[in-house]
Nucleic acid binder design. Sequence first.
DNA 1: AACCGCCGTAAAAATCGCGTCAAAATCGCC
DNA 2: GGCGATTTTGACGCGATTTTTACGGCGGTT
Lengths: 225, 225
Amino acid sequence: MTRALVVDDDPGLLRTLVINLRTRKYVVDAAATGVAALAAASLHTPDVVILDLGLPDMSGVAVIEGLRGWTDTPIIVLSARTDQQDKVLALDAGADDYVTKPFGMDELLARLRAALRRAPTSEELPVVQTSSFTVDLAAKQATDRDGRPIRLTPTEWYLLEVLVRHEGQLMTHRQLLQTVWGPDYETEAHYLRVYVGQLRRKLELDPGSPQHLLTETGMGYRFVS
Amino acid sequence: MTRALVVDDDPGLLRTLVINLRTRKYVVDAAATGVAALAAASLHTPDVVILDLGLPDMSGVAVIEGLRGWTDTPIIVLSARTDQQDKVLALDAGADDYVTKPFGMDELLARLRAALRRAPTSEELPVVQTSSFTVDLAAKQATDRDGRPIRLTPTEWYLLEVLVRHEGQLMTHRQLLQTVWGPDYETEAHYLRVYVGQLRRKLELDPGSPQHLLTETGMGYRFVS
DNA sequence: AACCGCCGTAAAAATCGCGTCAAAATCGCC
DNA sequence: GGCGATTTTGACGCGATTTTTACGGCGGTT
């Protein structure tokens, strides 16, 4: 299943796009303003965004930047022939491709397929399950054995994500600190003790003898499922 | 599948590089700052890094050092003709190659292929197996015949790693001491007896008559699988 | 057979790293 | 500006690891 978000303030064009995409078996969300687009994207996490520049409430670039702040999902921009400058700015801001209006639906669909094909993020992010908790990387959600959500702070989540993505691998103190806190914190190994401890208290059945978030004394930590 | 990380603060150039690499079937991650680059590198463990010097937030050398702290992945540096001095520093810091801007995409791609060819093909499996244990260098994990993890201390691990990486070769006392303990410990040959003994007790089926961690009296030790 | 250099084992001593708790500082949101 | 949540910092006991010390065996040489 591929989920597309279409953003256009022209009701007629929007309708055409939605109908055509639904015919091609895409699951389609629609938005007519920049604000609505950002809200919908965050709610539905589409696999691709089709974005018309020149929305009433925000500049196209602002919308792209808003998306790029948290996702790498491909963005295909629609632009009128006169918006040459806007187009360049949009690409610099992080758009993946553009289509000049007027365009044929076939061309748009082809570019859409191409964008999805090369998107590295459309790779399935795994849901990792252990005997005491489950981590859904795509949904950014951890749940306990009964499926109840576990509340994690941003730092806790990021640390858990890095460990889970490298399942089975030893992650050195330096590597974890560099990834989660940044290069200036390489020596703050103490942060790790505090946060790993917090994760264990929230995730492990018996935080005193952890089964999945393991300490490798003097080296780092390792996640095993 | 080869994974590349491209780091450049110029959106136009970044985009050009990403598109060209994706066309060549690389899986590409992108970053515009040093901090983002280090985080992305640790999260995605690329097979090669293309790094523009002169990022806004960190010096190129700092980024290279940050990477070299935990990975040997090839780093190709992009530098303007005027950054002659920076270039030297970057190479000293551990970069593998450099390309002077402006450059042709063909040249960059050629150097990239060359770097990947030289590298001990990172996603290659550095897993060494013997009749009684297995060593996974990437995951930093040793397991017994039944796949159960064997707990090693940092010193034990580094010593084992050095021996395994030079499988079949005789490693002199001096070589081992210098690599694992540092240049000031060349004479502490006794450390080796203690730690090789510990490794044998943890890894060999019969520590009394070792099959894989062999003593070469008067000279050093040798690992054979 | 006694000596000597080298090796292996064991265990004590010294050092270092880890987990925990809780207070202080900071952040984010209203 | 105030409040709750989160991050950062500090202190301490405990356990793990490294270093040091001691002892015994093996093999070659005299």
